[in-house]
Simulated scan of single mutants.
Amino acid sequence: MTDYRKKLEACGIAWPELAHPNLPFAPTKRIGDVLYVSGQIPEVAGEVAFTGKVGAEINVETALKSARLCAANAIYWASDALGGDLDRVVQLAKLTIFINATPGFTTFSQIGNGASEVMNAVFGARGEHARSAIGVAGLPANVPVEVEAVFHIR
């Protein structure tokens, strides 16, 4: 087991087991020394773990769990794109966290912290990143959170 898997498990998250989606886009795209990871939803073993709108069916605690799973899935796809060698990550440059929330909900940054904390725990100083956490009217499969990532790699 790699150190990255151990660090993720220390966060209380098992290493994801994801299948390449049958969609008209890729989970990752590398351009030079930048790796873009498509938006990740809170999926565990091919199943959506949480659905609903934050502030209605989903509370902040569950939204935080969702953000953490999304971050883990982004790490999984980065690892997949890098042939399992996450040592090639120079820096996590940017995270964008989308929160499917009710009108008037404003605790987006707190939910975004769930994803940020996972990245910081797994990558250490290389996990420090710029970030946006924004509310949206809806997300695919009615998930509460979606996270996309941009990595600087070698």
Rank of each mutant, 00 (worst) to 15 (best):
L92C: 12
L69I: 15
S66H: 03
G124I: 08
E17S: 11
N22A: 08
F98R: 13
G138V: 07
L35I: 09
A130G: 12
A49K: 14
H20K: 12
L64T: 14
E117Y: 10
C11M: 12
S38H: 12
A63R: 03
Y36Q: 09
G83A: 03
F105W: 09
I97G: 01
L95K: 03
S109A: 15
P103S: 12
E148Q: 13
F151D: 03
A115V: 06
T107E: 14
G124F: 05
E117S: 14
V118A: 01
I75D: 00
A133M: 03
V147H: 06
N100L: 04
G32Y: 09
I99A: 07
A67V: 05
N73Y: 02
Y36R: 11
A10E: 10
F151L: 14
A26F: 04
L86D: 00
E146Q: 14
A74M: 08
Q110H: 10
P140G: 11
G104W: 08
R68Q: 15
H152I: 15
I75K: 01
G84S: 05
A56C: 08
N22P: 00
A130K: 13
A78M: 07
K6R: 15
K7R: 15
E57S: 12
G32I: 08
I134Q: 07
I111T: 03
L64R: 14
E117P: 02
P42V: 01
T51G: 00
R30L: 10
P144Q: 10
Y36N: 10
A133E: 07
A14D: 11
A49W: 04
I13Y: 01
V145P: 02
A81S: 15
G135L: 06
A115L: 05
S66T: 04
P21A: 00
G114L: 06
A93R: 14
A49R: 15
A63W: 03
L35C: 07
Q91F: 04
P24E: 07
G114K: 02
Q40S: 10
L8Q: 04
T2R: 11
V34S: 10
I153F: 05
K94V: 08
P140L: 11
A121Q: 14
L23H: 10
N73F: 00
D80G: 00
P21H: 05
A78E: 01
P103A: 11
D87T: 15
L8I: 10
R131G: 02
I153P: 06
G39C: 00
V60K: 12
P16M: 08
V54N: 01
A115D: 05
E148N: 13
H20L: 13
V60Q: 08
T107A: 15
N59E: 14
I41S: 07
D87F: 03
F50C: 00
R126I: 01
E117W: 08
R154D: 13
N59Q: 12
G83M: 04
V147K: 06
A130H: 12
G104H: 09
G83D: 04
C11Q: 11
K6D: 11
F105Y: 15
A141Q: 13
V37D: 01
E17L: 07
R154S: 13
V145M: 03
A10K: 09
I111F: 05
E146V: 14
T2M: 07
A125L: 13
A115I: 05
P140K: 13
E61Y: 06
T106F: 08
S38P: 02
A45L: 09
P42I: 00
P16D: 07
I111R: 01
A130S: 13
T96I: 11
T102Q: 11
V44F: 02
F123R: 02
A121C: 09
